[in-house]
Simulated scan of single mutants.
Amino acid sequence: MTTVSPEVPGSGARRHELAGFLRSRRERITPEQVGLPRGRRRRTPGLRREEVAQLSAVGVTWYTWLEQARDIQVSPQVLDALAGALLLDRGERTHLFSLAGAVDPAPGADCTGVTPALRELLTRLEPFPACVQNSRYDILAYNRTYGRLLCDLDDIAPEDRNCMILAFTNEDWRAAVADLPAAHRLMTAKFRGAMAGHLAEPAWKALLGRLGAAPDFAEIWARHEVVGTANRTKLFHNARVGPLRLDHTDLWLGPSPGPRMVTYVPADEESRQGLERLLESALADA
């Protein structure tokens, strides 16, 4: 006797939307755009299905089923290959993964939530350091004072602008934190708490893999400590202006613990003057 599992509500509509999206993207690309010969007997506008399958290194039958909205499983790695073969831009790639109900294993440095208005707000907060982070500690945008607070972020590759990575591997960042062991324990506990809802997501697993290579991280991670978010006063030793005592505040941009604006306000007059000198130094370097 054959049993059929009930379909998840909305999944059929998503599959049909995904099929139509793939077909439309395939039909808009010319063979010349992807280095394929046009040939004399091309009736299909754009690429053929077998050409997309070839470019993506997947089976022709499997890709055909995908365009037919069949109920098949598709991995993030295959979606990544399809996005490249179909020359999807950032918005289209995000739409592809959303329709497939998958998490992008290689998100770009830009975040659709960091609007021009939000970037303007970051600038207006100067000389107070501020940045936009996601729950994975990726630094998505920052103002000039934050860019010089712990290290020179402009010299860091976008894919490495992650507070966890920098706190465990970047010597300038580590030197700027007054109590590094305590900061490591707190950050790791917050990271573990945030990761609980993302255990199977490739981007989170990739970050955890990178952190595992840091000598200090493995021992702290093994403690299984968890802590929630909290605002507090932090002490930094900035290489340009000296000690800074700053009150840390998270301003949530969506459902907690999602994207947030991280802000630092001086806790005393000496720190306020230090932030003003730090901004002057950043402007001089520009």
Rank of each mutant, 00 (worst) to 15 (best):
D172Y: 04
W65S: 08
L86P: 00
K234T: 10
T249A: 15
D285Q: 14
L118E: 03
W62L: 08
H198G: 05
D154C: 12
E67S: 10
Y137F: 15
E120A: 15
F168W: 08
H184S: 09
I220P: 01
E51H: 06
P243A: 08
N134W: 09
L18G: 04
D138P: 03
A53M: 12
W221V: 02
L283P: 00
P107A: 11
A69R: 05
E159Q: 13
G91I: 00
K190L: 09
P129V: 10
L199S: 12
D179C: 07
L86F: 05
A182Y: 06
P255C: 08
H248F: 15
A85G: 07
L283D: 10
R90W: 06
A85L: 06
E67P: 04
L55Y: 12
A267S: 13
A189R: 05
R23T: 10
V177P: 01
P37N: 04
L275N: 04
S24C: 11
V241D: 13
P255R: 10
H248V: 10
F236H: 13
H16C: 10
R148F: 07
A230Q: 14
Y63Q: 07
A222R: 08
L140W: 09
A175E: 09
E17I: 09
L47G: 05
I72T: 14
A109P: 03
G91H: 06
E126C: 04
T2K: 10
R161K: 09
E67T: 04
S281G: 07
V114H: 02
W252M: 13
L279Y: 04
R185A: 15
V74D: 08
P45F: 14
A83R: 06
V34I: 09
P129M: 13
M1G: 15
L251R: 08
V52H: 15
R185Q: 13
R260M: 13
V114W: 05
V74I: 15
L82T: 05
V226L: 12
L96F: 11
L36K: 01
D268L: 12
K234E: 11
R49P: 14
G113Y: 00
T123P: 00
R232T: 02
R26W: 09
R38C: 12
A13F: 04
P37A: 12
E126L: 00
A175C: 06
L47M: 11
F97H: 05
L79C: 08
T263P: 00
W173L: 08
K190H: 12
T112W: 10
R245T: 14
S135M: 03
P181M: 14
V52Y: 15
R41A: 09
F236P: 01
P127D: 06
A178F: 12
D268R: 00
A267H: 05
R42P: 00
L279N: 05
A222T: 03
G113P: 01
F97C: 02
G101Q: 08
A57T: 14
L244Q: 07
G59L: 08
R15D: 04
L88S: 02
S56L: 11
R43P: 01
E7W: 03
G274H: 05
D154M: 09
V265M: 09
R48A: 13
R38K: 11
H16A: 14
R38G: 08
A203C: 05
A81Q: 12
A194T: 00
G197F: 00
K234R: 11
